[in-house]
Amino acid sequence: MFFEQLINGLTLGSTYALIALGYTMVYGIVQLINFAHGEIYMFGAFAGLFLVAAFGVNIFWALLGAMAFCMLLGVVVERIAYRPLRGKSSRLSALISAIGVSIFLSTLMALLRGTNTTRYPQVMSDKTFHLGSVEVSSMQVIILLVSALLMVGLQLMIQKTRIGKAMRACSQDIDASALMGINVNRVISFTFAIGSALAAAGGVMVGIYYNAVWPYMGTMAGLKAFSAAVLGGIGSVPGAMVGGLTLGVMEIMGVAYLSSSYKDAIAFAILILVLIVRPQGLMGQKISKKV
């Protein structure tokens, strides 16, 4: 029982981690809580649904297609709603603009598809594996594997590639990076693209796993994933992974052993506690203010 819940928690947690990565990367570079990130995740889920329903593609093509689509969407959102504000407006303005995008996107989807839940068509046969006494479904295996793969890939990209190096430089000091000849706008676009692709992957897999997508699925998932990013230490990529997994496990355990009626409150209680006790998160570094 406990181990099954643990697997459930890790499955949920790895989707949180995928979304949290986008928050943390964007925050690390432009200090903006990209509020629309949850909606990108939701669009990812719908894009996957569309591909499966319209073309009957298998889960991997659905994943790739949704990721590509959301990359584009993320870049467009940044271009329209955030870039015009960068440098000349306060962070408060940028955050409010992000909230605006979030509302716009979720309402747009609600108008296009209605507010009801849509079921995902059968994408793959549902097998159950037995590991000793623990039951694991094939979708859980896929979620855990794909998430792990994406996160390892992301880590490699950040550490080994040229653009990864530029991203790290920008998160240290964006002005100095610009002076060193890094095309900051390109790095930011790229960061939005990568973060959005990861969220889309999360969206498709959650849609299939829970067999449900709806226009407002991004709001709660986004808020929780952000909590995960803060829990791990915002700005820290490994932190987002650890934070996501921790939050997922805590939430599932909370529901299993405490009460399901407070499910949605658990993540926020954790968020508030973390911010009060250890604002830099589990793996973040304490930053002193610049004068």
Partner: peptide, 20 residues
């Protein structure tokens, strides 16, 4: 009414860009 929230969202973005 259905478009109200769409309008709210767009309003926030447009205000922040043109009249923060």
């Amino acid at each position: 009414q259905d478009y109200r929230l769409l309008f709210y969202g767009a309003l926030l973005v447009i205000l922040m860009i043109f009249r923060p």
